[in-house]
Design a protein around this nucleic acid. Sequence first.
DNA 1: CGTGCTCAATAAGTCTGACTTTTTAGCTCC
DNA 2: GGAGCTAAAAAGTCAGACTTATTGAGCACG
Lengths: 233, 233
Amino acid sequence: MSTPGRGLHGHVLDTLGPEITAGEYPPGSVLRTDELAQRFDVSRSVMREAVRVLESMYLVESRRRVGVTVRPKSEWNVYDPQVIRWRLAGADRPRQLRSLTVLRSAIEPVAAGLAARHATSEQCAELTECALGMVAHSRGHKLEGYLLHDVAFHRVILAASGNEMFARLGDVVAEVLTGRTQHDVMFEDPDPAAVTLHVQVAEAVRAGDAARAEQLTREITVGALQELDILAP
Amino acid sequence: MSTPGRGLHGHVLDTLGPEITAGEYPPGSVLRTDELAQRFDVSRSVMREAVRVLESMYLVESRRRVGVTVRPKSEWNVYDPQVIRWRLAGADRPRQLRSLTVLRSAIEPVAAGLAARHATSEQCAELTECALGMVAHSRGHKLEGYLLHDVAFHRVILAASGNEMFARLGDVVAEVLTGRTQHDVMFEDPDPAAVTLHVQVAEAVRAGDAARAEQLTREITVGALQELDILAP
DNA sequence: CGTGCTCAATAAGTCTGACTTTTTAGCTCC
DNA sequence: GGAGCTAAAAAGTCAGACTTATTGAGCACG
């Protein structure tokens, strides 16, 4: 939803991207540029631009005399925000949500530890504000407001880590949290224990206690894993 | 290296991509498609395809009547393998290597824990083979052979985790390990303690001991952080 | 038979030039 | 000086002709 259909080639991608990531074309399938151009009623130039973008996402490979062949799922650039969005909108949304939650559980505790060392005073203030906002919306079916502060909280943590790779996962985490609230679990008010943990993380970061911030965040992510029944026996 | 200059637009990207990721054009700079086409002596169609690819990497934004504007670094898709390669080849290689090493330190321990639960017997065998290969090449300036087995080891761990997001980081880890050996540290034989740790990780995964595999891998990544002087006081 | 060569068909790749659309900056007019 | 109009600028789109690499079929030769 960030930059939808800006240009004809974008419109083509909005249709073709989800189809490919949904697995509608088995690996090795061949698509012809000319046929696709006809199908979408665009010129070959526009179609070629769309194919180039799909190629840069490692979804397809274009070879002379052969055509545009669909690559196996294992080669896709699953970190591309666009690919993530397409897959989250498609059939294997649950699987995608699980993968991303596991990723979160690995990244966020480390990010919180780094944030405790590198966060500016402004970031600490934002963090506290977010945590308080979560508390304020934790009762009485105010899920929208709660989600908003929850997303902001985790974004600040990732940004404050000072690591650009972590910071770029803000959108992914936002997507996971939003997806969880909207579709899957959480019909009632959030777990009070989770809310408390967020407040404590904010405190630990402010205090510069890296080990504590990391440990507390690990507890948060364990909770997220449990919600999806991903856990070690 | 992987798929160089496949087509004219690829050649353009090989030059323009590194320039942008090196920060030669400050954020907000405007490039004109026509001028670029002249500069690289290609047609506008080819140039447009290249711009589309750069756009899908969030390096630039193309707007009517304005031109192709360079986006701020914070918006770049830093997980795109191509972008990673360009940045590793450029001036801020050290910074990039640090970011990636921190990422590794967050991901790999969790991946090793998952591998202990999900690895197939073939993967366990591969792992042991890699670890033994590392031992065999750990003395007598056999750095090339050591590196080969080291890279393979970490690839297997990431793949065996069963998480597609983790598995896709195999190339990144390979890049980091290779870069470390070739350019930065490690002029002598590798640390014997690190070699032992790899052997022990292989054992733990084979035994299905997730906690131990995770802890041992954490020690490996701590070593990697120390080599780059990234550490908590 | 099967090995290797030639050749023609095919689909991507490239180029050109004309045209459309959107956006912005400058200008007029009130 | 602000609102609205106008014209220029640059990306966007299209159609058509041509180029090039690849591959598979057919054929000759061992």
